[in-house]
């Protein structure tokens, strides 16, 4: 039989696949912008402790609310701390907490969603009811309750955020699993006698992974906004840890005469949210998923 040579695509290593996805993402202007912003923030988060020009918690009443200068690029705040130092370190806090929070959300949301999609029936119904019930509680109230009971340490914030932002992932994972579960290749694997674990791992996960990852990326930007709102309300990380939400909340009253103290964290926060959003969008497009979830900004 003659062989057609038009399909040159071969099985690729995970690394090759990832780099191809990134290249596709970067080939669109919006994807390129998003990726650049995100990468910039990540790099900054890694190197900020080493490049920070000042001590982030050094209070100096004599330097109160100085306008930007060669020494203090973004000026100083009401306690005389360097805004530039605090801004770049603030990104580090936000990224770390929300990144790990998203991982947790992905993990439990994805697994529970796949489980529900797989078992179906009564159990699925009950679990989804519970998830829906949680969905209807204003998350910020619940967060406030948790934080006021357990404190605002990172060890509390990460799992709490991860828990609340996992609900949406449950739905997506469940729907994706439902689509796959009816396919004959699953029936075929069951008829062959593969274990449930093998079916989930080999047949289902590869087919729902993309949808879950995209949702996770989207949830990340939501979570960032949520986390910053908490800090803004004073329930996020505790002072003097540099944090954008906290900085905005402290400096907002002084906006009329010391705008610099509030502008820098706002720019930091909004650019990161936009960056993650654009990246998630480009990621979805590169994987060929039509994403209709609304962006938070």
């Amino acid at each position: 039989m003659k062989v057609d040579n038009i399909y040159k695509e071969e099985k690729k290593s995970a690394f090759a696949k990832l780099s191809e996805i990134i290249i596709t993402m970067a080939s669109r202007p919006s994807g390129l912008i998003g990726l650049s912003i995100l990468v910039f923030h990540i790099i900054l988060a890694f190197i900020s402790p080493y490049i920070a020009p000042h001590d982030f918690k050094a209070i100096d009443p004599t330097l109160m609310l100085q306008a930007p200068s060669a020494e203090y690029w973004f000026g100083t705040d009401d306690l005389g701390r360097d805004v530039f130092t605090r801004t770049i370190l603030g990104g580090r806090t936000a990224l770390t907490i929300t990144f790990f929070g998203s991982l947790i959300a992905l993990l439990w949301g994805g697994l529970l969603g796949i489980f529900c999609g797989l078992v179906g029936g009564k159990i699925d119904d009950v679990v989804m009811r519970i998830v829906d019930a949680f969905l209807s509680i204003p998350w910020i109230l619940a967060m406030l309750l948790i934080v006021s009971l357990l404190g605002t340490s990172t060890e509390v914030l990460i799992p709490a955020l991860g828990f609340f932002y996992g609900k949406g992932i449950v739905r997506v994972a469940r729907a994706a699993t439902h689509d796959v579960i009816a396919k004959d290749f699953i029936v075929s694997a069951r008829a062959r006698g593969h274990s449930n674990f093998s079916i989930i791992w080999n047949e289902i996960i590869p087919n729902v992974r993309d949808a879950i990852l995209v949702e996770g990326a989207m949830r990340w930007s939501w979570m960032l906004l949520g986390f910053s709102s908490l800090s803004f309300l004073g329930f996020g990380v505790s002072p003097p840890t540099p944090d954008w939400g906290l900085m905005i909340s402290n400096a907002r009253g002084l906006m009329s005469f010391a705008y610099w103290a509030v502008i820098a964290p706002i720019v930091g926060l909004s650019s990161l949210i936009i960056g993650i959003n654009l990246t998630a969008d480009a990621f979805a497009k590169a994987l060929g998923i039509d994403r209709s979830t609304k962006a938070p900004v």
Partner: peptide, 18 residues
Amino acid sequence: LRIIQLIFQNPDESLNPN
């Protein structure tokens, strides 16, 4: 289970696309 195997109507559905 081994002695009985199935082949389905639509290979698009019976082969895992991934």
